[in-house]
Lab assay of single mutants.
Amino acid sequence: LAALHAEGPLAGLPVTRSDARVLIFNEWEERKKSEPWLRLDMSDKAIFRRYPHLR
């Protein structure tokens, strides 16, 4: 499970980098069924690119 911001401008976004990794992994797991070539990237760089508020 990932903790998400409940309200405000960040509502629905992950609270920590660990939470972001959970979301990225879950999405990758779903997408790899139809796109088996996808690589999993959970590096800090990938997290910041996707969720800049975690910098």
Rank of each mutant, 00 (worst) to 15 (best):
R21V: 07
I24Y: 03
I24M: 12
A20V: 01
F25E: 06
P14S: 01
L10R: 04
F25D: 01
V22T: 15
L40Y: 03
R17H: 09
H5I: 11
D19M: 07
P14E: 01
F48H: 06
W37A: 08
L4H: 05
D41L: 05
K33D: 08
W28M: 02
L13K: 09
A20P: 00
P9T: 09
Y51W: 15
E30T: 11
D19F: 05
K33P: 08
L1D: 10
I24K: 00
L40F: 04
A46N: 12
D44W: 07
P52R: 03
L23C: 07
L10E: 04
L4F: 07
L40H: 02
A20T: 01
V22Y: 13
N26P: 02
D44Y: 08
Y51A: 00
A2H: 08
L40E: 01
G12T: 05
W37H: 10
W28E: 01
A6N: 13
E27N: 04
P14H: 01
M42E: 05
L10I: 04
K45I: 11
P9K: 08
Y51Q: 00
A6G: 08
S34L: 13
A20W: 01
E35M: 07
A20S: 01
K45W: 09
L54P: 00
A3M: 12
I47E: 02
W28S: 01
F48D: 12
L38N: 07
P14A: 01
A11W: 10
S34K: 14
E30L: 12
L23R: 03
G12H: 04
F25I: 06
K32A: 10
K45Y: 12
R50N: 04
K45D: 13
G12S: 14
I24F: 03
R49I: 09
P52W: 02
R50V: 13
K32R: 12
E29G: 09
L13V: 13
F48C: 08
L13Q: 15
L1G: 08
R50Y: 08
G8W: 07
L38Y: 07
I47F: 01
G12P: 04
L4Y: 09
E7S: 14
P52D: 03
A20C: 02
K33S: 10
K33H: 13
R17F: 13
A2D: 08
I47N: 00
R21W: 06
E35S: 08
R31Q: 10
S34V: 10
L4V: 14
L13D: 02
Y51M: 00
L38E: 07
F48P: 00
R49W: 11
W37D: 10
D44Q: 04
T16G: 07
H5R: 02
F48K: 08
D41A: 03
G8E: 14
A11G: 07
L38R: 10
A3H: 11
V22R: 09
V22N: 09
V22Q: 14
R39A: 13
H53F: 02
R49M: 13
F25S: 05
T16H: 07
I47V: 15
A3Q: 14
D41S: 05
L54M: 07
I47S: 00
F25T: 03
H5M: 07
L1H: 12
S18V: 09
H53P: 00
E35L: 12
L40T: 02
A6D: 11
F25R: 09
S18R: 15
S43N: 03
K45C: 11
E30Q: 15
R17C: 12
G12Q: 03
L1F: 13
Y51P: 00
A2T: 05
V22M: 11
H5F: 12
D41V: 05
I24H: 02
R21N: 05
I24P: 00
P36W: 06
L10Y: 12
T16P: 00
P36I: 05
P52G: 04
D41I: 07
L1K: 14
E29Q: 15
R31T: 07
E7R: 07
N26Y: 13
P36D: 05
R17L: 15
W28Y: 04
P9G: 04
N26E: 09
S43H: 03
V22F: 13
D44G: 03
A6Q: 12
N26I: 13
E27H: 09
L10V: 07
F25W: 10
R50A: 11
R31L: 08
D41Q: 05
P52T: 02
R31H: 05
R39Q: 15
D19K: 02
W28V: 02
L4S: 05
W37N: 12
L54Q: 00
D41K: 05
L54T: 01
A2Q: 07
K45M: 14
N26S: 11
A2S: 08
L38Q: 05
D41T: 05
R49T: 14
R17K: 15
P9S: 10
D44V: 08
P14G: 01
Y51V: 00
R39K: 12
F25N: 05
K33V: 13
E27Q: 06
I47T: 02
R17A: 12
A2K: 06
L54N: 00
A46P: 01
A11H: 09
A20K: 00
M42F: 09
R55K: 14
K45G: 11
K32T: 07
H53M: 01
L13R: 02
E27V: 06
P14I: 01
D44A: 10
V15W: 03
H5L: 04
W37L: 09
M42C: 10
D44F: 08
L1A: 15
N26A: 14
L4E: 07
L1V: 13
L10A: 05
T16F: 06
V15I: 14
A6Y: 09
M42R: 06
P9H: 10
E35A: 08
P36V: 05
A20M: 02
F48R: 06
E30M: 12
A20I: 01
N26C: 02
A11F: 13
A46F: 06
E27Y: 06
G12C: 09
E30W: 07
P52K: 04
P14M: 01
N26G: 10
L38M: 06
W37E: 14
A46T: 09
E30I: 10
A6F: 12
K33L: 13
R39N: 09
R17V: 12
L10Q: 03
R50P: 01
G8F: 05
E29L: 14
S34Q: 14
V15Y: 07
A6C: 11
A3T: 15
R39S: 09
V15T: 05
L4T: 09
V15L: 07
E35H: 12
W28N: 01
M42Y: 06
T16V: 01
W28H: 04
P9C: 09
A6E: 14
M42H: 04
S18K: 13
R17Q: 02
E27D: 11
W28C: 02
R17D: 08
A6V: 14
A46V: 10
W28K: 01
V22H: 10
R21L: 13
R31C: 08
I47A: 01
K45T: 12
K32E: 05
D41Y: 04
G8L: 04
E30G: 10
A2Y: 12
